Amino acid sequence: MKATNSLPTAPFVLRLIGIILIVSALVNYLSILFPPNFSDKTWFVAVIAQLVDRGIVPLVGLGFIFTGSFLEHGSLASGDRGKPFGTFRFWALLLSLLLGLLFLAAFPLHLNNTRQVSDQELERIDREAKDAESQLDVQVQQRQQQITAALRDPNQAKQLDDQLKQIDAAIASGQLKGDQLEQARRAQKELQALKANPNSVADRAKEFRNQQLTGLRERRQTAENDARSRFWKNGVQVGINSLLLSLAYFIVGWVGLKEMGVLGGKRKPVMR
C-alpha cells in the first residue's frame, strides 16, 4: 500500500514548534515592556537585559520553521509562482530583520543607560559618604566637649578615680584572663592618660576620628568598585550578546529573503 501523508509529519511539527516558540517569545516581550516607564533608566536597563536574555528563543523558533520548509520544499522558496509576500516564510524572515534592528538598537541604548545608572549610583555613594563623614565630625566634637567638661567636674574626676581603682583591683586579683585582661589594661592605660593629661582628649578624639574615617573610606571604595563591576558585567556583557543576536537575525533574514528572490537574488528551484 502507498503511504499517505497526514498532518503530524515532520515539516508540520517543526513549523508548529517554531510558531509556538516565536509567539510565546513575543508575548513574553510584551509582558516585560508593560507597564512602560521609559523615563526610569533602571527600568530601561532591566528591560533590555531581559529582552536580550530571551533573545535566543525566537531565533530557535525561526530555525524550526525554516528546517520544516527545507524538508518540505528543499529550499525557502515557495512552490507556487505567486508573489512571496503571501507566504508565512516571508513574514517570518521579515520578523527576523526587525528583531535584528531591535537588538542592534538595544546595544548603544543599554550601554548609555547602564553608564547613567552607574554614575547615579556613584553619586549616591559619594553623597552618603560625605554625609557620614560630616556626622562623624559632629559626633566626635560633641563627645570631645562632653569628656572635657566631665574631666573639669570634681564629681566626674572622682568617678574616674573610682573606675581606675576598680580596674586596678580586678587586674591585681588575677581573676581576669586573656581578652578580658587585655581590655582591662587598655582601659587602665587610657584612664591614667586622661587623668594625667586632660588636654589629651583632643588627640584621642582625632585618633578615633581618623580610625573611623579609614573605615568609612574603605567601605566607600568597596561600594564604588562594586558599582563599576556591575556596569561592566551588565552593560558590556548584555551589549555584546545583543550585537551577536542582531548579527544572527540579520543573517537569517537577509539570506532567507535573498533565497526567496525578494532582495534581487534568483529563487532557488523547489525540490519535487
Rank of each mutant, 00 (worst) to 15 (best):
R217I: 01
K158A: 13
L191Y: 00
D168N: 15
R220K: 12
D168Y: 08
Q192S: 15
K177R: 14
A202S: 13
D161L: 09
D168T: 11
A169F: 09
A196T: 05
A170V: 11
K165P: 02
L151V: 02
R186V: 11
E207V: 06
Q180G: 12
L160A: 07
P198N: 06
R220C: 00
R219L: 12
P198S: 07
Q212A: 10
I167N: 03
R209A: 12
D162T: 11
D161T: 13
D153R: 01
A184M: 05
Q188H: 07
R185G: 00
F208R: 10
L191H: 00
R217L: 10
G178Q: 05
Q188W: 01
Q212I: 04
Q188V: 01
R217P: 02
N197T: 09
V201E: 06
L160T: 07
L194W: 07
N210S: 14
A187G: 04
Q211E: 12
L191W: 00
P154Y: 09
K165L: 13
E207F: 05
L194S: 02
D203E: 15
E190Y: 06
D161N: 11
E182D: 14
G178H: 05
D162I: 14
A196R: 06
T214S: 10
K165Q: 15
K206F: 00
E190A: 08
Q192W: 02
R185M: 10
D153Y: 02
N197R: 10
Q192Y: 02
A157P: 01
K177G: 01
S173N: 09
V201K: 02
L160Y: 05
T214N: 11
K158E: 14
A150R: 11
F208N: 03
R209E: 14
G174V: 04
E218A: 13
Q156A: 15
A150H: 10
K177D: 08
A172F: 01
K189G: 13
E207R: 05
I171S: 01
Q175M: 11
S200Y: 04
Q188K: 07
R152K: 15
A196M: 03
E218G: 03
N155H: 09
A172W: 02
Q183L: 13
D203N: 14
R209H: 13
R219Y: 04
G174L: 07
L216T: 03
L160M: 12
G174P: 01
S173R: 12
A157H: 12
A170W: 09
K177Y: 03
N155V: 08
L176N: 07
N199Q: 15
Q188I: 02
D179S: 10
Q212C: 01
